[in-house]
């Protein structure tokens, strides 16, 4: 019934619109308006560009001042890339505004007048070389600064980095830390099952026995942190907005990213005046219907706190003795886990 009403209503509105339009069209023909080369509309249209310019740029600058951006970056490289971004933004805003002043004022200024003829100006090589060169030089400067930073960010992680593994799967993240030995055990995707979700290969690598799988990510402030990233099923992408970190997780191809966190969670809470603030990790490569819900909390600790946290964690193997014994490993007895 409702839909019938809506349909009837729509048809009526369209019919009314058509009727009004037809009448106006006939009036125009009777008046012979269309025979003039341009009408009053020409001035109106030209003027509207100026109105649009003033209102549009007014809104742009007003809102840019009060918009809620992300808090300042909490990583060392993030400070630099943010600076690069804002410098670039300043440059492109200048270009944007200047070109639009011309683009939106010329229409009104040079609108059609019967008594005037346009200026014959087919080319000017000097001018064109000039405005080829200027963007070229500006671009080169931006490229060079970006390139230097990109090379630093993507350089191999320092030897003393804190390492851990991030695994993406539909639809959550899992992380694994090396235990006391400081080594992440080898994995094999064919060893994955409902219990051993990361496919840790206990048979072939003893380093797995002290690895632990916490529910939250902990990282120390001021130390380089290296993420070893992989995916179990489809593409995911590790995204830590506050640290300006992003790297895809690819099945079959481990990826890495390293950075130095600069503010602890506690410091951030204080800075933002928000007790509930948490660093978060999200997924930015579409991975299925739960893509938007792959959240994991990141905690940045002072180095001492972090070391304490690490020692408090119980290895996964100790938590899953049944699983380990079901593997029937030859040169291994369960008692070893207790050490």
């Amino acid at each position: 019934m409702t839909s019938l009403l809506i349909i009837t209503g729509t048809i009526l509105i369209i019919a009314l619109f058509a009727l009004v339009y037809r009448i106006l069209a006939l009036v125009n023909i009777a008046k012979g308006t269309h025979e003039k080369r341009v009408g009053f509309s020409n001035t109106v249209n030209g003027f509207l560009f100026i109105v649009f310019f003033i209102v549009g740029f007014g809104a742009f600058f007003w809102y840019s001042g009060k918009a809620e951006y992300l808090p300042p970056p909490s990583s060392e490289h993030g400070v630099i890339t943010d600076n690069l971004f804002w410098v670039t933004t300043a440059i492109i805003t200048v270009a944007f505004v200047l070109t639009h002043i011309l683009l939106f004022f010329f229409p009104y200024w040079f609108r059609f007048r019967e008594d005037r003829k346009a200026y014959w100006y087919p080319d000017n090589t000097k001018l064109e070389l000039l405005w080829t060169a200027i963007p070229g030089v500006v671009m080169a400067l931006l490229v060079i600064t970006g390139l230097i930073e990109w090379t630093k960010i993507t350089a191999p992680a320092p030897e003393d980095s804190v390492q851990f593994e991030i695994v993406g799967k539909q639809f959550n993240w899992m992380v694994r830390y090396p235990g006391k030995d400081g080594k992440l055990g080898k994995y094999d995707y064919t060893k994955i099952d409902g219990t051993n979700q990361l496919g840790m290969d206990f048979a072939n690598d003893k380093a797995n026995f002290d690895d632990f799988i916490p529910r939250e990510i902990h990282i120390p402030k001021g130390k380089p942190v290296k993420l070893n990233i992989r995916a179990r099923d489809v593409l995911h992408s590790v995204y830590m907005p506050h640290f300006r970190v992003k790297m895809d997780a690819v099945p079959g191809m481990p990826t890495t990213f390293w950075f130095i966190p600069t503010k602890t969670t506690a410091e951030m809470r204080k800075e933002l005046n928000n007790d509930k603030f948490n660093y978060e990790m999200a997924c930015t490569e579409v991975c299925g219907n739960g893509h938007f819900a792959m959240r994991m909390v990141i905690v940045v600790d002072e180095p001492e706190e972090f070391n304490k946290w690490v020692t408090e964690q119980e290895p996964w193997a100790s938590q899953n003795k049944d699983y380990i014994s079901s593997l029937k490993l030859k040169d291994f007895n369960l008692a070893d886990l207790e050490k």
Binding site: N45, T99, F106, P107, F110, R111, F112, Y119, W131, P135
Partner: peptide
């Protein structure tokens, strides 16, 4: 270059909207 050329084409034109 293309953008600048469009804008320069408008300059001192006799524009019909």
């Amino acid at each position: 270059v293309k953008s600048f050329n469009y804008i320069t084409t408008l300059w001192r034109g006799n524009i019909v909207f």
